[in-house]
Amino acid sequence: MTPLLEIRDLAVHFAADEGRVEAVDGISLTVRRGEILGLVGESGSGKSVTALAVLRLIRPPGRIVRGSIRFDGRELLDLSEEAMRHVRGSQIAMIFQSPRTALNPVLPVGRQIARLFELHRGCSGHEAWQRTLEILRLVGIPEPERRASQYAHQLSGGMCQRVMIAMAVATEPRLLLADEPTTGLDVSIAAQILDLLRELGRRTGASMVLITHDLGVVAGVCDRVAVMHAGQLVECSDVHGLFKHPAHPYTRALVRSIPRVDREVTMEPIPGAVPSVLEPPPGCRYADRCPWVIDRCREVKPELLPLEHDHEVACHAVEPSNVVPARS
C-alpha cells in the first residue's frame, strides 16, 4: 500500500533583501496511513514551512523550488488551485499554534464549525448545527450547546485549541497537520490536548503530523519521528529507535539538552547556535556545531540512508557500529 503522504526532495526558498533564504533544503519524508509522525526541530528548522508547503500555502516571497509531494498517490504540486482548495478543505487539515488568533473573533465558534459542514458536506442549517454539537462533544467540550454560541475571547486557551481541533476534524480529513498544538498552554491542559489528539487519531484512522520542538511530546504521542535542523532532515526513525539509539549527532545533543523530571541527569547544552539559512554553504548544516565533523561534511550534503529497521540518518560520520544507546 502506498504511504498517505510522500515528500521527495522538497525545497522551499524565500527571497529576502539580503539574499535567498533556504528554509527547507531538499527533504524527503513519508507519512504512513494511520500513524502519528513527529516533526521535531528548533525554531527556524523549517518544520512549519514544510507543513505549509504540503498545503501549498507558501506565499511570496516564498516559493517551492523543487520536489514532489504525493498525497494518496496524487501529486499535489501539479493540482490546480481549485482542486487544491478541495484537498485543503476536506482531505488535509491544519491545527495552528495560536488557536485564539486562528478563530474568527466576530463569529460564535459553533457557527464557524457549522459553516464547514454546510460548505463541505452540504448539510442543512439544522443538521449542520447538530453535527457541530456532536463534534464539540467529541473533542471534550463540556456543555457544547452553551459553548457553541460563545465567541473565541470567551473561551480559555485550552478550549480554543479544542475548538480548533474540532474544526480540523469536522470534515473528516485523512491527514492532520498540527503545528505546535500545545505550545503556550499549561502543562495539564497540554496533556489533555495531546490525549485528545492521540485518541482522535486512533478513532478516525487519520494520519497526523505533529510539529513540535518538545521531544517529550514526541515520546508520548508519536509512532515515528523526523528530526529537522536548519532546513535539513537529519534523522527519521520509529520513536523507540530514536530515543534508544539516536544516531545523528544533533539528535543526540538534543536528547541530552532537555531537563528531565523523571531522572537525575545533567543537562548538556548543544554547542553553537542554529546556523543562518541565508545562502548557506553546501554540505551538512550541522557541521559547524558537530563534534564528529569531517572534511566531507562541509562539501557534500549527506543523504538520508537506512541504518537499521525503520531508522534512517543523514550523516557522513555515522556507521551502524558507532550508534550506541543514548544514556544508560
Binding site: V187, D214, L215, G216, V217, A219, G220, F243, D262
Partner: peptide
C-alpha cells in the same frame, strides 16, 4: 502531566 522524552516510560 510533564511529557517525558522516553517512549517506554
Amino acid at each position: 502531566a510533564i511529557p517525558i522524552p522516553d517512549p517506554d516510560a
